[in-house]
Design a protein around this nucleic acid. Structure first.
Lengths: 113, 113
DNA sequence: AATATTATTCGTAATTTTGCGAACAACAAA
DNA sequence: TTTGTTGTTCGCAAAATTACGAATAATATT
């Protein structure tokens, strides 16, 4: 084996993958885009925007929270959600760097070619 | 119901979600980053970089191909893979726009607040 | 023709994801 | 205290994802 197989990945690769995975469903993209268009809103508002049951919306919100992209706080009897701006910026930067780190088309870097 | 539930999402939301989903696994991020660092390479080279079986690598490559982020062409008995630069740029732009479309912190847009 | 190299596909298993309705919890209002 | 509002959690089902070894296909070499 030329490269040892350690069963793990670099920490920054795993972080980007976690952000991407959280964004990997149209319902969650919709939620994020909706929240990004305002300061904050309640669970019920988000629910009304989506073509799925509230139980499912709640699950998606939990996933987005776990990924760090949104935050929620209880304002009885409602729950207010908003973008986590710190991690939003972190994710933005991670994606930006990832996509900009591509070799120009006309440069050949692989010695095999 | 205030908003009709049509079971679908906007086409641009679905496209961003598809790109994100394809990037939602560390093995696939690794593959993309590796391919982005060179012009192209063979399946075997990618395989050596990853801590998983070749059958699994092949599956991940298929997913990346289906998402449009990479391309593969047969050069018997090998297969050469490379970034699909057109869709790479498309994805880059989709993520960039998504993250930049956030309201400034000090602007309140929700009439409920 | 037999053998070696390369990568995909097959068959299978374990886990995760997505989704829903019903039940529940927490609080406010009547 | 009963009732209503809001959102989460539970229990379950169906489908998708992740992973592997073995079998296969396709080509080149001996």
């Amino acid at each position: 084996m030329a490269y040892p197989k350690n069963k793990t990945y670099d920490i920054d690769i795993e972080e980007l993958a976690r952000f991407a995975k959280a964004m990997g469903h149209p319902a969650r993209i919709s939620i994020l885009r909706y929240l990004a268009s305002m300061d904050s809103c309640f669970f019920g508002d988000i629910c009304q925007e989506l073509p799925i049951a509230k139980a499912t919306v709640s699950q998606h919100l939990t996933e987005l929270k776990n990924a760090g992209l949104i935050r929620g706080e209880i304002e009885p009897p409602k729950v207010r959600y908003c973008i986590d701006r710190e991690n939003w910026e972190k994710a933005n930067e991670a994606f930006r760097q990832f996509f900009s780190n591509i070799q120009p088309n006309d440069v050949c870097c692989n010695p095999e070619n």
